[in-house]
Simulated scan of single mutants.
Amino acid sequence: MTKQFDSVWLREPRQPKASGLRLDHIIGAAVEILDAEGLESLSMRKIGAKLDAGATSLYWYVANKDELLECVLDEFWGMVEVPESDETSWRAVLTAFAYNFRDTLRAHTWAASLIGQLPSMGPNALRLTDRLRRAYIRAGFRGVDTYLASGTVMSYVLGVVTPEIAWAKTYGTVDINRDVIVQMMEQVTGDYPEMMADYRKETPIDPGAARAMAFDFGLLCLLDGLEHRLPGGSGERPEG
């Protein structure tokens, strides 16, 4: 059966009760638990205990856990910094967004599981979306291409970071010992000596540097491709 679309952002927010407990307190506590223990460990009971409040008191602000997670996801979008598009070149805006989005995802890995699962309709998400929209329009994108371009950059960052998060969840760290990987590959690449030689020669020894190089290379290629699709390939909309 198809799930009916609903969102915490589609109803009027509740005013704080006299107890002093506020929605931002609940969101803050949820983020702390998520950062420390992960998405699977989050519960209304734990949040209530952290705030020294009964779990039922949380339901004054949110109807259920999904509504709380929507609020938490919007808090995440508020952490992703994006320069003002009217003051910076479109490529600089998107580069800053991509790197800040990447860093924020890596710092709050639980968000990767919520993006796409829950609607992003809160004030922080809308503010970020509009700032990016203006950057794409300033570049020269029009109509649906504006949102297709934005989705492409968003998907690129998610596509790079999500495997890192999965690896870290399984092995406890994103760092991979290159020597160990080389030894493992040597056992299975007997039919591909040239590929193995390339790997030994070309891949950086430091895994962090390798990830940074790969992210930068992919982002530059992506932005070059988007610029190529603009009228005249100039990247900036002509004045007037």
Rank of each mutant, 00 (worst) to 15 (best):
Lys3Pro: 00
Phe5Lys: 07
Asp6His: 04
Trp9His: 05
Leu10Gly: 07
Leu10Asp: 13
Leu10Val: 07
Leu10Gln: 10
Glu12Asn: 11
Glu12Ile: 10
Lys17Ser: 07
Ser19Asp: 05
Asp24Gln: 11
Ile27Pro: 00
Gly28Glu: 06
Ala30Thr: 02
Ala30Gly: 04
Val31Ile: 03
Glu32Asp: 13
Asp35Gly: 03
Asp35Leu: 03
Gly38Ser: 10
Glu40Phe: 00
Leu42Phe: 01
Met44Gly: 06
Ala49Lys: 11
Leu51Thr: 02
Gly54Gln: 05
Thr56Asn: 14
Trp60Met: 00
Val62Gly: 00
Lys65Ser: 04
Leu68Asn: 08
Cys71Gly: 14
Val72Asn: 00
Val72Asp: 01
Asp74Phe: 01
Glu81Gly: 01
Pro83Asn: 12
Glu84Pro: 10
Ser85Arg: 12
Glu87Leu: 12
Thr88Leu: 09
Ser89Cys: 12
Ser89Arg: 07
Ala92Leu: 04
Leu94Ala: 06
Leu94Gly: 00
Tyr99Asp: 06
Asn100Tyr: 01
Phe101Glu: 00
Phe101Asn: 10
Leu105Tyr: 07
Arg106Met: 13
Arg106Ile: 06
Ala107Ile: 02
Trp110Asp: 05
Ala111Asn: 08
Ala111Tyr: 01
Ala112Val: 11
Leu114Ile: 07
Leu114Met: 15
Gln117Pro: 10
Leu118Tyr: 05
Ser120Asn: 01
Ser120Gln: 02
Gly122Pro: 04
Gly122Ala: 07
Gly122Met: 07
Ala125Gln: 11
Thr129Gly: 05
Asp130Glu: 14
Leu132Thr: 08
Leu132Val: 05
Leu132Glu: 11
Arg134Pro: 01
Ala135Val: 00
Ala139Lys: 06
Gly140Pro: 12
Phe141Ala: 04
Val144Gly: 06
Asp145Glu: 09
Leu148Glu: 09
Leu148Ser: 08
Val153Met: 12
Tyr156Leu: 14
Tyr156Phe: 15
Tyr156Gly: 08
Val157Gly: 05
Thr162Phe: 05
Ala166Pro: 01
Trp167Thr: 06
Lys169Glu: 11
Thr170His: 15
Tyr171Ser: 10
Thr173Arg: 08
Asp175Pro: 05
Thr189Ile: 03
Thr189Asp: 03
Asp191Lys: 12
Asp191Asn: 11
Met195Pro: 09
Met195Thr: 15
Ala197Gly: 14
Ala197Val: 08
Arg200Ala: 12
Ile205Gly: 13
Ala209Arg: 10
Ala209His: 09
Ala210Phe: 08
Ala210Gly: 13
Met213Arg: 15
Ala214Thr: 15
Phe215Pro: 08
Phe217Asp: 14
His228Gln: 09
Gly232His: 13
Glu239Pro: 11
Gly240Val: 08
